[in-house]
Nucleic acid binder design. Sequence first.
DNA 1: CGTTGAACCTGTTTGC
DNA 2: TGCAAACAGGTTCAAC
Length: 283
Amino acid sequence: MPELPEVETVVRGLRDSLAGRRIVSVRLGKTDFIDDPAALERELPGLRIETISRRGKFIVLGLGNGAAVGEDGSSDSALLVHLGMTGNLSPRAAAEPLLPHTHVQLALDDGRELRYTDPRRFGRMAWLPATRLAEFGARLGAEPLAVNESEFAARLAGRRAMIKALLLDQHVFAGLGNIYADESLWRARVHPRRHASSLKPQQVCRLWREVRHVLQASLRAGGSSISDFRNADGQPGWYQLRHRVYQREGKACYRCRSKIRRVIVAGRSSHFCPQCQPRPRSR
DNA sequence: CGTTGAACCTGTTTGC
DNA sequence: TGCAAACAGGTTCAAC
């Protein structure tokens, strides 16, 4: 579920209600998706949530002791939350009954709890001290909405891998996932199996524009809700109503009425129009 | 480097 | 109806 637009939607929803709140206590259920569960229990109580931001598909809760806040806005430490496929992070009244698969409860100083639920537990959670924060950011690729055209092209230059694989690779661009990769490629008329190095500069430029277009349009829609994505307020997004190829196998292309096809590329279902997105010459 | 397949989990949908 | 297979927004690792 959660790619850049969904994660950003969650972050924006959390920002107002969470900023300035202090974590009072930590309660953990299943912990196999947490890097170091003991560190959460040891470090989080007493810390204040100072910032709520996003890096790639990670939610970053910037934490501090509330006393001496760094002037530069940097935090003493951070709690990273990756929603995986089915993760959900939202504040609830402490009295509210727990939803199934609730694995983390962070009690806040205003009587609420920040709860993390995740049926499949493909998500991740980790507490990082400031010293490890920089390396975390450095390991991730560029923010697709922050790169300009030439930076975008530079990231693909000299890469012989299939374009779909590179769009999904979080070390290249951080935040794109299966939905928005397919939607961007359809808009740019590029076949998912095209090798990046075979794309003409004009096609790379087009792809850069369409990636931005799709992400921004989805952001305005509050993301895509395929089955279970909900923002921090429990509301679904509606960008799924705008999908042009994703999960539209066998249906008519919005441009040329050809039947949308689905193939596996980079191990993931990939939807494309065989007419609008001609397959590469050979391999 | 690049590609594939499996693994990690649970839930829902599809097909025989 | 019932059961098995396929599939799902993600990442990581081993093997070739």
